[in-house]
Design a protein around this nucleic acid. Structure first.
Ligand code: NAD
Ligand code: NAD
Lengths: 218, 218
DNA sequence: TTACTGTTGATATAAATTTAGCAAATTTAA
DNA sequence: TTAAATTTGCTAAATTTATATCAACAGTAA
């Protein structure tokens, strides 16, 4: 395996796609062997890219044959760390928080929201998907007791930095942030910003341009 | 302006960040002029990158001075197409659908969910954020009458392709897809996949590696 | 005026990422 | 056995994207 540091970020973001696809083939489609061409075909990724991505981590295929689906799934799962469950705390039992907590398919990716926290007395004590919403004041105790490393921020933008600080103080090591703001965190804390507006705006950008072209053409 | 085709995808995804930041400065912070260094600083983007991104579309700053916040905001808004509202239909009034429909801040990015559709009789007729959930059967009529171009897919994976086909048949031109699957669409249809699992798995990947390193170190 | 600091935008350079090409390995079929 | 067809994984090339450099310009203060 190459030095883990200089593996392209884009490669790491394609691995979960391979993983999900392999799981589907393995579990539901009864496919034993797959070529890089077929796997890439399902995901609109060139076969050369698939092979290159995998080659950063080792040799998983057999020349002239392809990849064993079940084996490759396990290998990729191990590379990603999804061969075990990673419990998380989620802060912000609002609209988005509810959706995330109720979502079943995360478990397939090794992710599980184990605790839900909020600061609104009207929400504390409520049940969401079998979990009782707890007071954010207890975050230190909760994180210490459960040894959870992952935090999800689903609070309004204004509260995101405060919540991030509380998470880090409590011992959280990695943050999945849905608030549209950059968090200031120490360098050892990993942050992934899930900025949904970027997605829709890039669609609007193309649509808007398309429409402008059409207008010109007339 | 350069040929719009060969502007980096990454640039287009940074523009919404600039836009939101400029809007905040303009509306709430009463800042008139900003340098690429300051703007980049707020977003963890190098000033050279900010200037390069903007330079694809023209000259917006004054040497020795910086950028007029309000002017640049308007220019970037126009580039992105968010200087007008883009109404959308959303299909799938479930957990995620609810969150998206209730989310207020999309409007600032020119995005608005105008209609909500579902195929579950138990959901049709319900109100979400002042909008009545409509029967997916009426999609053709709805899209034709409203001339909506944007569709949001928030249905289970299994139903995503069917819904995409229905959208395209009805006249939808661009699809924001939350289902974790690749949609097969004609080339003229724009699709943006919002695959949340990728985000959390890339966090797990880092966390998992970190933990492995620590274990080794002991 | 003049020197000094700060800033843009263009061009040049460097780095990262993707794509192509091909030898080696494997299977299939003649 | 041998030839043809596949398919991997390595290396090299091409492409894309990011970063550095610097002349031109603008403001400020001596
Ligand atoms: N809803 C969406 O579809 C959507 C889309 C994109 C981004 N987001 C972002 O996700 C975040 C949450 O959005 P939402 O729509 O769920 O908001 P929401 O208002 O529905 O929920 C926010 C929750 O956070 C809680 N909260 C506020 N301050 C807190 C604090 N200091 N400590 C603990 N809990 C606190 C509130 O009590 C509330 O329950 C926001 O940052 C939003 O910008 C949401
Ligand atoms: N909830 C989350 O946090 C989350 C996270 C990541 C991805 N997703 C994805 O988003 C999608 C929606 O997730 P969810 O949790 O809201 O699911 P959900 O089950 O809560 O809601 C799905 C809705 O779609 C409707 N529906 C099903 N088939 C339909 C059809 N053919 N036409 C019209 N409506 C139909 C259902 O009636 C239901 O209201 C899924 O693809 C899921 O994988 C959700």
């Amino acid at each position: 395996m190459k030095n883990r540091e200089n593996i392209p970020k884009a490669t790491i973001e394609r691995l979960p796609l391979y993983y999900r696809c392999l799981d589907k083939m393995d579990t539901f489609e009864d496919i034993d062997v797959v070529s890089s061409k077929d796997l890439g075909g399902k995901l609109d990724i060139p076969s050369t890219q698939v092979r290159k991505d995998l080659s950063y981590y080792g040799e998983f295929g057999r020349r002239g044959v392809g990849y064993n689906v079940n084996e490759l799934k396990k290998s990729v799962g191990k590379i990603l760390g999804v061969d075990r469950m990673w419990p998380a705390i989620l802060v912000g039992a609002g609209n988005l928080g509810h959706a995330l907590v109720n979502y079943k398919s995360f478990s397939m990716m090794g992710f599980e929201i184990a605790c839900v926290l909020d600061n609104d007395p009207a929400k504390i004590g409520n049940m969401i998907n079998g979990k009782k919403v707890q007071d954010i004041k207890n975050i230190d105790k909760i994180v210490a007791e459960t040894d959870i490393k992952l935090g999800v921020i689903a609070v309004p933008t204004d509260a995101a930095q405060v919540v991030a600080d509380e998470m880090i103080d409590s011992g959280i090591k990695a943050i999945w942030n849905f608030a549209p703001t950059r968090l200031r965190v120490p360098p050892e804390i990993e942050v992934k910003n899930e900025d949904l507006a970027v997605g829709i705006v890039s669609l609007i950008y193309h649509l808007s341009w398309q429409e402008e072209m059409e207008t010109k053409g007339e």
